[in-house]
Design a binder for these strands. Structure first.
Lengths: 330, 330
DNA sequence: TAGTATAATGTAATCGATTACATGCGGGAA
DNA sequence: TTCCCGCATGTAATCGATTACATTATACTA
């Protein structure tokens, strides 16, 4: 059906080796031969069969991207950054959804191994990374994004969560807020833990007493934002403002507040990690901590390509990108 | 490095053919041999090399998914549906971003051809589909999603845009609205054109005069929603409510209105296509038309697998899924 | 003119699987 | 006992590229 290198070789009256060399830009080929071969390639509409090439070169120019959820703007904006950058180097991306399950993550890793990817970029589904060793065993470089894991050390791209949180809470304090609630994520994730740390550190630095009754932990999903905001508002002494550590909980919390009576609504505000989609348009929202999502992706892609081209390189490297504080105009 | 079928064969004292048969579940292999081989596979941590397999079988169990943008919840929720469904059949997905450019779309198609995908699911970047023939020429099945194209006919999964729009506008009319504005998309896209049609048909059926001054066209992006809403509100006689034909323009329009004075804000409302993310939480929003995004994806995946397994099948088939009208509680 | 370096191309093995065809073996029928 | 059949397995070609090594042609030197 599709023409092969043999067809081209026969038509051009040369060997397959010569055709291959033309395709790969070998400078030893005379320009006369090159012209002739290129003409035949064009006439036969020949397209290289990367399967065959990969078998011989053991390079697939494909990388795997595993994330806990596809329909998530943070993950997908990172993916966009990854794809954009990798494409420049001729790589394409197999996207896998681990569904926030370690078991499924394992399966995806097996899949990527069987597909012989040249590398993987992973947003871990859990705090455990023992199963990532399967990739390392085959010398397939891995770059983690957003979270570190236990039992596996490799390159990673993170944001400076601590100072991101800190700056937001500090801003709230400087704006006169004193009773600042918090909705955090599962602290087994490094990112959640760090955002925690930033919040607490700011309170401590400004000598504001920490009150566990207005510190709640959700799971980064809309529903838990809703539930935790409800709990906060039902406390004896609710906060004046709540710092929420991710976008989807921000959305859930907003949803809860919208349903409340005007009297309640007037007395509460929100600050939140992540500036995506409509975050900045949401009612109650005063301050946002914006992550450079595209840059996270492109940086991860870059580090991965570095490793692919130089696997015997340096020790695992961690890059921390800065967040940006966004204060909404009144 | 990684062990091959040869290593397994040697260790088990059988031929590679036997190992291959075990891997592929050939029933002719005696259970004694099968056990022995499986044991060796396990001990050597052998993983099949799909590159080699694909070369021989000319099946890659990989499909391409091309969409105009990755950081878009509609496209990515469809992608999730696709991935979920395809995985059940052992397929994985290469995700490509056409960046809303036909040129880039062409490049991605070339890429997919070189990667020897077994099929492609495409959300077209434009109204033109002539370049999709390159896939058809290699007998690679294509399923379109959301939009049809000119010059290329193939299987497609769409929603019933006309009746989706119609139902929304009809609901507005029944709720007493008479001056209903519209912000549509580029009518060269079939989906935009159909949503148009639904809006206009409802007005006609209820004998409400159509007024071009409150019918505007944007490009499905946030900014154009903002701009067009502004234009509408600056008309001599602005609408009471505006039906907006996609989520991102809805967001933009809301953004514009939030910035306006209370007097203006009180007099306007919104209805919109797409129920995603926060659509239902947005101020001004009364009615939404929800698309079954996951189902669109899984249906497209299903149709594609059908074609892959039976390429000489029936004529191109178009599936239209129903939308759902969502009325917000006051 | 012979000898040698260099440039251009060809020959054929190879990557790791699949599979058509070949083979050997054991058991049942006559 | 002999013949045949079918089951279980092996042999080797093959998929479409790459590439080490071999070969030929050309040019240059002495």
């Amino acid at each position: 059906m599709a023409s092969t290198i043999k067809d081209v070789a026969k038509k051009a009256g040369v060997s397959t080796a010569t055709v291959s060399r033309v395709i790969n830009g070998d400078p030893r080929i005379s320009s006369k031969t090159r012209e002739k071969v290129l003409k035949c390639i064009h006439e036969l509409d020949y397209k290289i069969n990367n399967i065959a090439r990969s078998l011989k070169t053991s390079k697939t120019y494909t990388i795997g991207f595993i994330c806990p959820e596809l329909a998530n703007t943070f993950f997908m904006t990172v993916a966009k950054g990854v794809e954009d950058e990798l494409r420049k180097y001729g790589y394409s991306v197999i996207v896998c959804n681990s569904n926030e399950s370690v078991e499924e993550e394992k399966e995806r890793i097996k899949l990527l191994l069987e597909k012989c990817v040249d590398g993987a970029i992973i947003i871990p589904a859990s705090h455990s990374g023992a199963h990532f060793k399967a990739l390392a065993d085959q010398e397939i470089p891995v770059v983690l994004v957003d979270r570190l894991v236990e039992d596996f050390s490799t390159d990673a791209v993170l944001v400076d969560n601590i100072n991101g949180s800190y700056a937001a809470v500090e801003h709230l304090i400087n704006s006169g807020y004193r009773r600042i609630g918090y909705i955090g994520g599962d602290i087994r994730f490094t990112s959640a833990k760090e955002r925690d740390e930033g919040y607490k550190r700011a309170l401590r630095d400004y000598c504001i007493p920490m009150d566990d009754s207005i510190i709640k932990y959700g799971d980064y999903h809309i529903q838990s934002g809703y539930d935790k905001m409800k709990e906060l508002m039902e406390e004896e002494e609710p906060p004046e403002i709540v710092f929420i550590s991710n976008y989807y909980m921000h959305v859930g919390a907003t949803k809860f507040l919208i349903e409340q009576k005007e009297a309640i609504r007037r007395k509460i505000a929100i600050a939140s990690f992540d500036d995506m989609e409509l975050a900045s348009l949401l009612e109650f929202c005063k301050v946002l901590v914006s992550q450079p999502m595209l840059e996270i992706g492109s940086k991860a892609a870059n580090m991965l390509i570095q490793r692919i081209n130089d696997s015997k390189g340096h020790d695992p490297q961690i890059v921390r990108l800065k967040t940006q504080l966004i204060v909404k105009q009144e």
